[in-house]
Amino acid sequence: MTDISAPPRRPIGQTLLRWGLYAMLFLFAFYYLMPLFVMLTTSLKSLEEIRTGSLVALPREVTFDAWATAWSGACTGIQCEGLRPYFWNSMLMAVPAVALSALIGAMNGYVIAQWRFPGANLIFSLMLFGCFIPFQVVLLPMARTLGFLNIAGTIPGLIFVHVIYGIGFTTLFFRNYYVTIPQELVKAAKIDGAGFFRIFWSIFLPLSLPIIVVTVIWQFTQIWNDFLFGVSFSQAGTQPVTVALNNIVNSTTGVKEYNVDMAAAIIAALPTLLVYVVAGKYFIRGLTAGSVKG
């Protein structure tokens, strides 16, 4: 038999199906990338070119003027300092808020999953419930609380809000991760003489990299992109970048500087993009980690 050595032919139907699949994937990728492409090219054009050229055309002459303006010269209301100060506000707010909410979530998850106490399930359910309360509902009580704590309109105030709001999610993440770890590990460590915190630091935290990455990406994206809390609980000088972006876009007088708006929008979105690109593969891995035994 001669045709045994010949490579097996894929049936024509399967080949067509495969091509159809690729065509769909390309179509959707194109569809999702198009706005980014337009933003990027517009931000690199001059105002003159935007007025005369086509929306989807590549820039004839690449210029970074719009980026420079967006970063340090665009006006938000009466001030014209660009996004820079607000970008740092966002950093000062997001980094501690992410770190704190992740740490508290890890501790909560550890207690709920591994140190079962009466009412543990009830407390976990209440925390889950907290995940589903819309932001708008808590605005007024939160404003009162911030005022009472004397941190209204400050960055620590915003950190406080985001930590409180994030604990529900971070607890859920860590609890579901730790629940898959056999309870015998805690028992063994207890017999070895380790206490509550020692077991957490020496055994559970080192195991948690995948879920820490998931939590950090999730929380960072949430907190960085938040607009409602930012606009409600900040004042001039403490506004996060999302609020500043809104002000830049809305407070132009005369000619609308589309290139500056686009550049500003990209700058505001860069950190979350960066976090996802750097840690994205851990994100996918972490989301599916529960199904694999260590």
């Binding site: 056999p182 015998e184 590990l185 028992k187 063994a188 020496s202």
Partner: peptide, 12 residues
């Protein structure tokens, strides 16, 4: 000292 069914070795 105790030996467990799942061994309970510290994975990291």
């Amino acid at each position: 000292a105790m030996v467990f069914q799942s061994y309970a070795l510290y994975p990291t």
